[in-house]
């Protein structure tokens, strides 16, 4: 098995006094696509935000490529090779598609080269963005905005890509496009940790999966196993009736 790229151990985190994560353990190996599934409010987004440092870890350890990163700031992490595609895309709406992409390469040491190579990569992955280069990002369709959010994160050539709900609010056809792009990225060797409410979709594309509930990992395994698991289908179809409250 490949080397572990990201490891989260016993992670506790939250907002102010509201604890959201209660001891989460997650591991992602180099080259893997790992899905993190679970109902709304399970703490999936908080986990991603804590990994990149937008939310501070209260205790526990986050290790990336052998280095502890639990006190790193987001602006430093992207330099190490961790990029988050945040929930709700968080584009720079009034700025053009091209400017958004250029800013994606902000953290690169050789910016001019990163922009050149990144744009070529993005054009191959999402040709529609090249056509829209001069348009303000806010004028793109929802699907195009999601593509731009992913493309912006790719501009700094991250080793680990964290994706938060890329399918949210998109039409099935567009979701298909986005996930086939993820498949291609994985084929290129990018490691991906994917948070998704649509568990079936996520597991179909992932190698392994974690199921999260109320701030804890309750199940983990290979995607095929999870897809076949009864409790998983219950969880991703909604709350578990009559089981623990």
């Amino acid at each position: 098995m490949a080397e572990v790229l990201l490891s989260v151990e016993g992670l506790h985190a939250g907002y102010g006094h509201a604890a959201v994560l209660h001891g989460v353990d997650v591991e992602v190996s180099e080259g893997e696509l790992v899905a993190l599934i679970g109902a709304n409010g399970a703490g999936k987004s908080t986990l991603l935000k804590t990994i990149v440092g937008l939310v501070r870890a209260k205790s526990g350890a986050i290790t990336f490529a052998g280095d502890r990163i639990d006190t790193a700031r987001p602006e430093d992490l992207v330099r190490c090779g961790v990029a988050l595609v945040p929930e709700g895309r968080m584009l720079f709406g009034p700025m053009t598609v091209l400017e958004n992409l250029e800013l994606g390469a902000y953290a690169s040491k050789d910016r001019a080269r990163a922009i050149e190579e990144g744009l070529a990569r993005v054009e191959a992955l999402f040709p529609v963005l090249a056509e829209r280069a001069g348009q303000p990002a806010a004028t793109l369709s929802g699907g195009e905005q999601q593509m731009l959010a992913i493309a912006r994160a790719l501009m700094c050539s991250p080793r680990l890509l964290l994706l938060d709900e890329p399918s949210l609010g998109l039409a099935p056809l567009v979701i298909g496009e986005i996930f086939s792009a993820l498949d291609r990225l994985r084929a290129e060797g990018v490691t991906v940790l994917l948070v998704e409410q649509d568990a079936r979709l996520a597991l179909k594309h992932a190698d392994r999966g974690y199921v999260m509930r109320t701030g804890r990992i309750v199940l983990e395994g290979r995607s095929s196993e999870l897809l076949a698991d009864d409790s998983v289908s219950r969880i991703y179809l909604g709350g578990e009736v009559g089981q623990h409250r």
């Binding site: 602006e75 992207v78 709406g93 902000y106």
Partner: peptide, 20 residues
Amino acid sequence: KAMRATSIRRDAARLVGIDA
């Protein structure tokens, strides 16, 4: 561009590596 990005969306600016 980094200044504009920070004023539009501070968190997103930090995510691309801008020291807000």
